[in-house]
């Protein structure tokens, strides 16, 4: 595509902002990660490989992100499918129910989960009242709490692209499938699901990427025994004042995420996921 020079000038502010506020700090980060005590060194990267706690953090982070993504898909897909079948009024109400938590501050929602999940919280007392459990479950200050909180907080990021993608599926295609002899289950499997897949992939990818760098919720609900990568970076800066170590972790995380993107792009072209 050819852009005239005057039109090209319009791009300048955007390019400046991206360049100055994103690319430069990233390059700075990259540079910092190779510096130790004023000298060029690979010691920060060596630590990533040598120190088992670092590796564990990465593994745990990807496990949590994977679990949150899987739970998001399992909860979000039926939710969207159900919303699609509501009358416009009820669909609007359901959408608002998804939106209100989305608009609510992350911190507020995380503290709300603290109230719900604590030993004598609403969830435990209900489960006990119903006779389902005798002892309160430990639902917070562990990975379970982190996963519950993150799934709820990140669910809207799956619901929006997925619902939009489902709405775009031409209803005539489902009628055509039925007319051609497809049972509702066959039509879902062969027509509706494949056509909603780009939205599902986009949503799942959003949740996964956001999960990997998540900080606030694991910090408050996770209890500190398992450390996600986001927390690891923060600790390196706050506790050990080691910008080099924090930068190396950040760069490694970024590299892994970009690698995953590349891999996924090979499997499902991303322009089909995000381009519609």
């Amino acid at each position: 595509m050819r852009v005239r020079r005057s039109e090209g000038l319009l791009l300048l502010p955007g390019l400046l902002i991206v360049g100055a506020l994103l690319m430069l700090p990233l390059l700075w980060l990259l540079a910092l990660s190779f510096v130790n005590d004023g000298a060029i060194s690979l010691v920060h990267y060596k630590r990533l490989i040598d120190d088992p706690s670092y590796i564990k953090s990465f593994v745990v982070t990807f496990q949590i992100a994977g679990t949150v993504t899987a739970l998001g898909v399992l909860l979000g897909y039926p939710l969207c499918y159900w919303m699609l079948r509501l009358t416009p009024l009820w669909r609007g109400i359901a959408m608002v129910c998804v939106l209100i938590p989305f608009w609510t501050s992350l911190l507020v929602r995380t503290y709300a989960w603290l109230v719900l999940l604590q030993r004598r919280g609403l969830v435990n007392s209900w489960l006990q009242d119903l006779g389902l459990i005798h002892e309160p479950l430990s639902l917070m200050y562990n990975v379970t709490g982190t996963i519950i909180g993150m799934t709820q907080i990140l669910l809207p990021f799956l619901v929006f692209p997925l619902f939009a993608s489902m709405q775009r599926v031409d209803q005539d295609l489902l009628r055509a499938a039925a007319a051609l002899g497809a049972s509702p289950a066959f039509a879902f499997r062969k027509v509706f699901f494949p056509l909603s897949l780009p939205g599902l992939m986009a949503g799942a990818l959003l949740i996964f990427v956001l999960s990997i760098g998540y900080y606030v919720t694991p910090q408050l609900l996770g209890g500190g025994s398992t450390i996600m990568v986001g927390q690891l970076i923060q600790r390196n800066v706050e506790l050990f004042n080691s910008w080099g170590a924090a930068s190396a972790v950040s760069v490694a995380l970024l590299a892994i995420v970009l690698g995953l993107f590349w891999l996924m792009n090979r499997l499902v072209p991303l322009d089909r996921v995000f381009g519609g």
């Binding site: 031409d170 005539d172 295609l173 009628r175 055509a176 499938a177 039925a178 007319a179 051609l180 002899g181 497809a182 049972s183 509702p184 039509a187």
Partner: peptide, 13 residues
């Protein structure tokens, strides 16, 4: 899906 009717739609579908 049990009527066995072939249908051609306006927008092809």
């Amino acid at each position: 899906h049990r009527r066995g009717i072939g249908i051609v739609f306006q927008n092809y579908a």
